[in-house]
Measured scan of single mutants.
Amino acid sequence: QTVVIGDTTYHLNNPEAAQQIAKELAKKYGLKVVISGNTIKLK
Rank of each mutant, 00 (worst) to 15 (best):
V34N: 04
E24S: 10
K28P: 00
H11R: 05
I35R: 01
N38K: 05
D7T: 14
I5F: 12
V34A: 04
I5W: 14
V34P: 00
T9P: 06
A22M: 09
N14F: 11
L25C: 07
G30V: 03
K28V: 05
N13S: 12
Y10E: 02
A22T: 02
N13P: 14
T2Q: 08
N14I: 11
K27M: 12
I21L: 15
Y29S: 03
L25K: 00
T39G: 04
K32D: 11
K32Q: 13
Y10C: 10
G6W: 11
L31V: 09
A17R: 11
E24W: 15
Y10V: 08
A17L: 14
L31K: 05
N14S: 14
V4N: 05
I5L: 07
V33N: 01
N38H: 05
K43H: 13
V34H: 07
K41G: 03
Y10L: 14
T2A: 10
A18V: 11
I40A: 00
T8H: 13
I21E: 01
Q1T: 15
S36D: 14
A18R: 03
T8Q: 09
I35M: 06
A22I: 12
L12G: 01
A18W: 14
L25M: 05
I35V: 10
T2G: 04
K23D: 12
L42E: 02
D7W: 15
V3K: 01
E16C: 10
Q1F: 15
G6S: 05
V34R: 00
I35N: 02
I5K: 03
G6A: 06
Q20E: 11
L25V: 03
Q20C: 15
I35K: 03
D7F: 14
T2Y: 13
P15I: 13
V3H: 02
H11Y: 14
L42W: 05
I21K: 06
Q1D: 09
A17G: 04
N13H: 11
A17M: 12
Y29W: 05
I40G: 01
K32I: 15
G37K: 02
T9D: 02
L12K: 01
T8M: 13
I5N: 03
T9E: 07
G6R: 05
N13A: 12
P15S: 09
Y10K: 02
K23R: 12
K27C: 10
T8Y: 14
K23G: 04
L42V: 09
V33F: 06
H11D: 07
L12A: 08
I40F: 03
A17I: 12
N38F: 05
I35H: 02
I21P: 00
K32M: 14
N13E: 12
N38Y: 04
N38T: 09
K41L: 15
Q1P: 11
D7I: 13
V4S: 08
V33R: 00
S36W: 08
K27V: 08
I5D: 02
Q19M: 15
N13Q: 11
L42R: 00
A18E: 01
A26Q: 06
E24M: 14
V4F: 05
G37S: 03
L31A: 06
V4P: 02
N13I: 11
V34M: 05
V4G: 04
K27D: 13
S36N: 10
Y10P: 01
K43L: 15
G6C: 11
K41S: 13
L31H: 06
A17V: 12
Q19A: 09
D7H: 13
Q19E: 10
L25I: 07
H11Q: 07
L25P: 00
G30C: 08
N14Y: 09
T2D: 06
S36T: 11
I40W: 01
K41Q: 13
G30R: 04
A26W: 14
I40Y: 03
V3L: 14
K28G: 00
Q20R: 13
L25S: 00
E24T: 09
A17F: 10
T8G: 04
L31Y: 11
K41C: 15
Q20L: 11
E24P: 00
K41P: 00
A26I: 06
K23P: 00
V33Y: 05
T39D: 03
Q19W: 15
E16K: 09
L42G: 00
L42K: 01
G37Q: 03
V4Y: 07
E16G: 08
A18M: 10
Q19I: 14
K23C: 13
N13L: 14
G37W: 04
I21H: 02
K41A: 09
V4M: 10
P15N: 08
I40M: 01
Y10F: 12
K41V: 15
A26K: 06
K32H: 13
V4A: 04
K28D: 04
Q20S: 08
L42I: 10
E16V: 08
I5Q: 04
H11M: 08
K43W: 13
G30N: 09
L42Y: 04
K28W: 09
N14W: 09
N14L: 11
I5A: 01
V3Y: 06
K27H: 09
D7V: 12
L31D: 06
A17S: 08
Q1M: 15
V34F: 10
K32E: 13
G30K: 08
E16S: 07
L12I: 12
L12V: 11
N38M: 06
N14C: 07
K27P: 02
P15D: 05
Q1Y: 15
K27Q: 12
I21Y: 11
T2V: 12
K32F: 09
T2K: 12
A26F: 11
K28M: 07
T9Q: 07
E24C: 15
A26C: 10
P15W: 15
K41R: 12
V33L: 12
V4D: 03
E16L: 10
A26E: 09
E16I: 10
D7Q: 12
A26Y: 12
H11F: 13
V34W: 07
A22H: 01
Q1I: 15
L31E: 04
P15G: 07
G37H: 05
S36F: 11
D7Y: 14
V33P: 00
T8D: 06
L25N: 00
G37E: 05
L42N: 02
Y29T: 05
V4K: 09
A26V: 04
S36H: 11
K32L: 13
T8L: 12
K41Y: 15
N38W: 05
Q1R: 09
H11S: 06
Q20D: 06
K28N: 01
K41N: 10
T39C: 13
T8A: 09
A22C: 02
T8C: 15
N38P: 01
K27I: 10
L12F: 15
K43E: 15
G37N: 05
K43C: 15
K43F: 15
V4L: 07
D7A: 12
G37V: 04
K41D: 06
G37Y: 02
E16M: 08
T9N: 04
T39I: 12
Q19C: 13
H11I: 11
N13K: 11
E24K: 12
Q20K: 13
V33D: 00
G6P: 03
Q19L: 15
A18S: 02
I35Q: 05
I21A: 04
N13T: 11
K43I: 15
Y10W: 09
Q19S: 08
Y29M: 03
L12Q: 01
K28E: 04
A18L: 11
T2H: 07
K32T: 14
N13W: 11
Q1K: 08
L31M: 11
Q19T: 08
I21M: 14
A22L: 12
A18F: 13
H11L: 08
L42Q: 01
T9F: 06
E24F: 15
I5H: 04
P15T: 10
Q19V: 13
Q19N: 06
K41T: 15
T39W: 02
K28R: 09
Y29I: 04
I21Q: 01
I40R: 00
P15A: 13
L25Y: 04
A18I: 13
P15R: 10
E24A: 14
A18T: 05
S36Q: 11
P15Y: 11
I40H: 00
Y29A: 05
G30E: 04
Q19H: 11
Q19P: 03
V3I: 14
K43T: 15
Q20I: 09
K32N: 12
L42A: 00
Q1N: 12
P15E: 08
V3P: 02
V33I: 14
K43Q: 14
A18K: 01
T9M: 08
G6H: 07
E16R: 08
T9V: 13
T8W: 15
K23V: 09
K41W: 15
L12S: 04
N38A: 06
A22D: 00
T9L: 07
E16P: 01
V33G: 00
K23E: 14
T39Q: 07
A18N: 02
S36K: 10
Q19R: 12
K43V: 15
Y29N: 05
K23F: 13
Y29Q: 05
G6Y: 08
D7G: 13
Y10Q: 02
K23L: 14
L31F: 11
L42P: 00
L12H: 04
H11G: 02
D7N: 14
N14Q: 05
Y10M: 09
V33S: 00
A26G: 04
L12C: 00
A17N: 08
Q1A: 14
K43P: 06
